[in-house]
Simulated assay, not measured.
Amino acid sequence: MTEVAASVDSSVLVRAEGGLGRLTLNRPRAINALDLGMIRELTAALDAWESDPEVRAVLLDGEGERGFCAGGDVRTLYQQIVGGDPEATGEFFRAEYALNARIAEYPKPVIALADGITMGGGIGLAGHAQARVVTERSQLAMPETRIGFTPDVGGTWLLGRAPGRLGEYLGLTGATMGGADAVYAGFADAIVPSERLGELREALEGAVREGQDLDTALRAYSTGGRPQSSLQSARPWIDDSFSADTVAEVVERLRTRPEPEASATADTLAELSPTALAVTLAAVRRARELPSLRDALAQEYGLVMWFATTQPDLVEGIRAQLIDKDRDPHWQPATIAELEPDAAASALSYRPTTPLWDGPPV
């Protein structure tokens, strides 16, 4: 068997036990936020195990009680942008998106345990696995618009396939999903009580060792049934409002709805980057029509590089939320009413200098 070694001090713990390859994100103080080194370690392990007959499935989880993965290292992204190093920014996203596609296309089963906080880049890892497990502690979200950005890591692919207009709602607002919401929206497959995750890991290893069906082991520890989702009950006002053609019309419809949650959502949107909202609305809808995850990732790569190289809102959003932490971003433009009508079209037509994949653009 090919050995892939990693010390306990590594940001990714890599080991194989009884035919089960184990990948554990190991930056618990940062809620396992991804940096380029971690992405490369994960990729190297998957590459080594693909042709290893003794590794028959892969389990992906995170160290610590707070969460599986809080996302990408946006502080480093901020430093790259303000430092004028777009190539480093592109290198990170190309490596990350290649890993997202690798997980989705991996020839052996990948099981992800998205316990606790799982956002942004964490969705890019767990959301494309063949079996996606959440718990009662899970908090899943694509919160990129809150930093003047747009969902990526294949997030628009998942959002575009959520029921009704939940994709637009979740993408624009960055709303957090609990376990039941994540299953309903198509971001997860099963809910397992967090106290039983250790037993589940042992059961999965035993199933792999004995050549048994992994789904049987997952079902044995799942809560079963289809738990009630708050998103499902909110579908009437979400679908009505987020089917509007523009962000301005979405807000207008939300204001006319009788539900208090609709008005609160309109207030949330008014605080976020108008450019990020317009681009996200268009990106989710276009991803809904794309033929594959790789196409969605290529679209997202163009959008994130457009934001990183041409738009002030991304740097301003990171500054306000994570650097100065004043929670007072000054967006350009400042309001939805001031948005240029072609803002989203300009973003979607942008082509990075270095493409994500070889071949013609999306």
Rank of each mutant, 00 (worst) to 15 (best):
W49S: 06
D313H: 14
V110R: 02
N32I: 07
Y221N: 06
R286H: 14
I147Y: 06
M177I: 11
V55C: 14
D295R: 12
L77E: 14
D52W: 10
D313Y: 15
E136F: 02
T173N: 10
P193M: 05
A114Q: 05
G302W: 07
N26T: 03
I318H: 10
T246I: 09
P341T: 12
E252A: 15
A298L: 07
D342R: 13
P53T: 04
R161V: 08
Y106Q: 12
M119F: 01
G160L: 03
R66L: 13
W357S: 08
T2R: 11
E65V: 10
E316R: 15
L46R: 02
V14F: 00
K325A: 14
A114F: 00
D239E: 07
T280D: 08
K108T: 13
S229W: 04
V362C: 03
W306N: 02
N100W: 01
D181E: 08
E300C: 03
G121V: 11
L290G: 08
G148K: 09
S243I: 05
Q321N: 09
E195N: 03
A126E: 07
L166S: 10
A287T: 13
G225K: 06
A48D: 04
T118L: 04
V133R: 00
P291E: 11
E202C: 03
A262N: 11
R351I: 14
V208R: 07
D342C: 04
P86G: 06
L339H: 12
V153Q: 12
R327V: 02
E91Y: 02
A347T: 03
Q232A: 15
L158H: 08
S263T: 12
E96H: 14
L281H: 05
R146K: 14
P258S: 09
T118R: 01
A162C: 15
L140I: 15
Q321Y: 08
R219G: 05
Y184K: 01
G302A: 11
A248N: 05
Y97S: 03
D358Q: 13
P360W: 13
S263D: 13
L77N: 03
A188I: 06
A45I: 02
S273E: 02
R102K: 15
W357D: 15
G37R: 13
W306T: 07
E50C: 12
R29H: 12
S233D: 08
D239T: 12
Q80K: 07
P236N: 13
V183E: 02
L218E: 10
S230I: 12
P151G: 11
A112F: 09
S229R: 08
R285H: 13
I103Y: 01
E41Q: 15
S273G: 13
D213S: 13
E87Y: 03
P329K: 10
S10F: 04
E91W: 01
G148N: 04
